[in-house]
Design a protein around this nucleic acid. Structure first.
Lengths: 212, 212
DNA sequence: CAAAAAATCACCCTATAGGGTGATTGACAG
DNA sequence: CTGTCAATCACCCTATAGGGTGATTTTTTG
């Protein structure tokens, strides 16, 4: 079974070298190449020329950029998208994955990485080239480190949870079947326990998991 | 230059087959193998026997589990940790990465994946085996989908951002060098734009990325 | 260039939040 | 069995938030 690939890259040299490299593989067929995302989108809107292809999408395109193109593409079809990028910037990577790219490969990783990525995606997996994976892993590592944990009594925690959903003291009192004064009391003690002085600070801590 | 590797896996068959496979490589030296994380930690506490080794850590260990072991290890030393796991469960994967593992490999991906992972980590990259990468990518994709986006004018966005950090109207006014009345005005318009009726609801939307 | 939207400020008034102090009850640990 | 702490409630008072209305000026944009 052939793997159908479409390449979008504004750099003709990159485009051609990737195409030639991939076509040398016995199981890959490059069905089309584009220099601009707009051209690909136009083709996509016209024909359904690719049943289930894999799209190699450069992130630094002139005009409609690679990132902005993703939602447009997803509206019409649902190819597996492998992003190609010259640099490994965390925000670009996370953005691309959030928008629905299945893989992300740094051009520095070389043609073999692109081939590996295509083969993995074809089998239902996802591929992140080494430096890209490093950024993604780093995102998780930084996000949950270095914060003291607060352990709250049950009711204080309940109140905090309700606060974080935007309820007023009165609403919380009704839901918990206690008086507003008690709610206030819980909140005051909670603020001391957590060493904060208002709702927003408390909710911020609650939201990023520093409270249990 | 040799790459020093330590293996922790309770399954003797896995342990030995990985060790033999790795030692067949010319540039890798398996300096020690353990069946339990506790034994490794004891060695680590005693000697500084490994300058900068790579640790292959099984996630399903009896006693001190692979995940629980990570913080203990990090307290004493800082090896690059590659998690090995039989299954690809999103929560385990994210937990491991949050705790500071640099890579995560499914045992189903085979010995070659382990070798590739070690080589990549040795070069400063990170490696996620295909199905694992799929889970991680899926985490981003699901987390930001299917919610209407609000696009706010610049100042309203600035105010919202400041609100989300717990500042009062007065503090925001000072920081932005405008009057409190203007801050209030921005906030009122912002609430209408976002269809919310208080700070907390607005911040909740802001926090999970529905606002730009 | 004209209309729309963004940004600025003002004054009205009410609702909600939050700090302090103190009391009662029941559970639990030393 | 006595002190600590969670949970409940009450009253005092001030600060902060938020809704309505309306005005002026600048910026954007069709």
């Amino acid at each position: 079974m052939y793997t159908s690939v479409i390449i979008i890259d504004d750099d003709a040299i990159v485009r051609e070298s990737v195409r030639m490299f991939l076509e040398a593989q016995s199981d890959i067929e490059v069905i089309q190449c584009f220099g601009r995302a707009e051209d690909y989108l136009a083709e996509l809107a016209k024909n359904q020329f690719q049943p289930n292809h894999i799209l190699l999408l450069d992130i630094g395109l002139p005009g409609l950029g690679g990132l902005e193109a993703i939602p447009e593409i997803k509206q019409i079809a649902d190819p597996d998208i492998i992003m190609l990028s010259t640099y490994e910037e965390e925000d670009k990577i996370l953005k691309a994955l959030s928008l629905g790219a299945t893989s992300y490969i740094s051009k520095r990783a070389g043609l073999k990485a692109i081939l590996e990525g295509i083969q993995i995606v074809q089998k239902g997996g996802a591929y992140l080239s080494p430096a890209v994976a490093r950024e993604v892993v780093g995102f998780f590592a930084q996000s949950k480190r270095k914060k003291e944990e607060f352990e709250l009594p049950a009711r204080q925690y309940e109140v905090l949870s309700a606060l974080s959903e935007g309820r007023t003291y009165q609403e919380i009192a009704n839901e918990m079947s206690i008086s507003v004064e008690t709610v206030r009391s819980h909140i005051k003690k909670m603020y001391r326990n957590m060493q904060v002085k208002n709702k927003v600070e408390a909710i911020n801590l609650y939201m990023n998991g520093s409270v249990k």
